[in-house]
Amino acid sequence: MSLPKLPLGEWIESVEGWLTRHFGPLFDAIKAVIGTMVGSLELLLTSIPSLLLILLITLLAYWIGRWKMALFAFLGLFLIDNLGLWTQSMQSLALVLSASLLSIVIGVPIGIACARNNVIRNTVTPILDFMQTMPAFVYLLPAVSFFSLGVVPGVIASVIFAIPPTIRLTNLGIRQVPEELVEAADAFGSTPAQKLFKLQLPIAMPSIMAGINQTIMLSLSMVVISSMIGAQGVGAYVYRAVTQAKTGIGFEAGIAIVIMAILLDRLTQNVFKKKQQ
């Protein structure tokens, strides 16, 4: 005798419908804010002539890193422009930067709260496990239901997929601050805010930056998936190449994504090293 199937799917759809009916204005407001953020970044990145922006990013790479990074930035971005994928790459970059910024703004405070309160940490940890193990495609379904098609659900899905490393590593970095230093700060009469901003966060910064780096990389990995729900950019070229079996176009778009990924990875890794020097 088999047990009856739990109507889990029906429960989820009921919750989704209830949220849509009662929180529609809130979702519209979130859509407007995120849409404006992405649109502004995209307008900024695409309005600057490509060669000028390539030179600016090359100078930034040289200032943050070394001449090898600057050379890679120049050659890689010039190749993207030469392949005719500059506008699409900037659209994808605007999506990635928006998702990463939202993940950092939301994730770092949650990570701090987890480090300072075990109850919050024990509550948040299973949620993060769920977010990291659930297939990324599943996030697209509620995102589309709440925010319709376009770039906004792509950003929302990217935030859900990419935020866990920032939360986890912020929590880990603060908890790894030596207890002797924390006790010394307490002994000198430091307030909780002073202890956090002048002791714990500076010492935990390498761990926090590692989490931010991983968040940016995960956001970039959602570019192709987001194209399935209407997000424009390089991911749309990859998706179109897959559906039409055009290997050449897919390879060119993939190279553009790889170049952006390596560049973002190296820049975020070296920006903290630059501050320490």
Rank of each mutant, 00 (worst) to 15 (best):
M37T: 01
A32D: 00
M209L: 14
L43G: 07
I167L: 13
S219Y: 02
I257Y: 03
G235K: 10
L101I: 01
V119I: 06
K275S: 12
Q200P: 04
L79H: 11
M228A: 14
K246A: 05
M131R: 05
I212G: 08
G233R: 04
F23G: 00
P178R: 12
A61N: 10
L141I: 15
I163D: 03
L56D: 07
H22S: 10
G84I: 08
V144Y: 04
Q244C: 04
L75H: 01
I160H: 03
P164G: 15
T268V: 15
L263S: 09
L75I: 13
P178C: 09
A236C: 03
N171I: 00
L93N: 07
I106P: 00
A162K: 05
N82S: 15
S221W: 06
L77E: 06
F130N: 05
V224N: 04
V223K: 01
D129I: 08
L71W: 09
V144R: 03
L71P: 01
A236G: 05
L128W: 11
L56W: 03
T20Q: 11
R168P: 08
L141A: 13
V177M: 06
L3G: 10
F72T: 11
G24P: 01
P192G: 12
M209N: 15
I80K: 00
R121D: 14
S98G: 02
S50C: 02
Q277N: 09
Q276K: 12
P202L: 11
G84Q: 06
T87N: 08
V38M: 02
G24W: 01
V105P: 00
T247Y: 08
